[in-house]
Simulated assay, not measured.
Amino acid sequence: MARARIDDAAGAAALAAASDFDGASRDARATAVRFTLQVLADFAPGKSVEVRVPPFGAVQCIEGPGHTRGTPPNVIETDARTWLELATGRLAWADAVAAARVTASGQRADLSAHLPLRLP
């Protein structure tokens, strides 16, 4: 069963609320993360890279060889605050990697060409 999509208006509202990350509700942060992951998957479709933002969500994206079981060969993982900063352009990919705020393993585990997201 496919996961329900977050519509643009609800996603934008959650993202606006989560811009004050510490003041935002957990639900707003979760919806903002899931919405931005959804946008990433829409603009970079594929199954070669898995982007994980625990505990809120994960998506597979970017064209290339996919995987079906076990740990994927290309994994990116970060916390919700870092992900939202990357998605909105408040933090550059290279800076996040250099500061160890992102873990990225695999040849394709680089989102610099896709960030910041083109949000609706």
Rank of each mutant, 00 (worst) to 15 (best):
M1V: 13
M1G: 14
M1E: 06
A2W: 00
A4S: 12
R5I: 03
D8V: 07
D8Q: 05
D8H: 05
A9M: 07
A10I: 01
A10C: 01
A10K: 06
G11A: 02
G11N: 07
G11Q: 03
A16R: 12
A17I: 05
A18F: 09
A18G: 11
A18D: 03
S19E: 10
D22H: 10
G23K: 12
S25T: 13
A28K: 00
R29I: 13
A30Q: 01
A30K: 08
A30S: 14
T31C: 13
T31Y: 02
A32C: 10
V33P: 03
F35A: 05
Q38V: 13
Q38R: 14
Q38I: 13
A41S: 15
D42G: 10
F43R: 15
A44H: 04
A44S: 13
P45A: 08
P45W: 11
P45N: 09
G46N: 12
G46Q: 11
G46D: 07
K47T: 12
E50S: 04
E50A: 06
R52P: 08
V53L: 15
V53C: 15
P54N: 07
P54C: 05
P55S: 15
F56I: 00
F56M: 09
F56S: 06
Q60I: 06
C61P: 03
C61S: 11
I62M: 10
I62K: 13
I62F: 05
E63V: 03
G64A: 07
P65K: 14
P65F: 15
P65I: 13
P65S: 15
P65T: 14
G66N: 02
H67K: 08
R69K: 12
R69P: 01
T71F: 05
T71G: 04
P73V: 09
N74I: 07
V75Q: 09
E77F: 06
T78K: 11
T78Q: 05
D79P: 00
R81K: 15
W83K: 15
L84T: 10
L84M: 13
L84G: 14
L84F: 11
L84R: 13
E85H: 14
L86E: 12
A87H: 13
A87S: 15
T88P: 08
T88Q: 12
G89H: 04
G89K: 06
R90Q: 14
L91I: 08
A92I: 01
W93E: 05
W93Q: 09
A94H: 13
A94G: 12
D95L: 14
D95E: 11
A96C: 09
A96E: 05
A96I: 07
V97D: 06
A98F: 09
A98K: 11
A99C: 07
A99D: 10
A99G: 14
A99Y: 00
A100V: 02
V102Q: 02
V102R: 05
V102S: 10
S105M: 04
G106A: 06
G106H: 02
G106R: 03
G106T: 01
R108D: 04
L111E: 01
H114I: 00
L115A: 05
L117R: 10
L117Q: 07
R118S: 02
R118Q: 06
P120N: 10
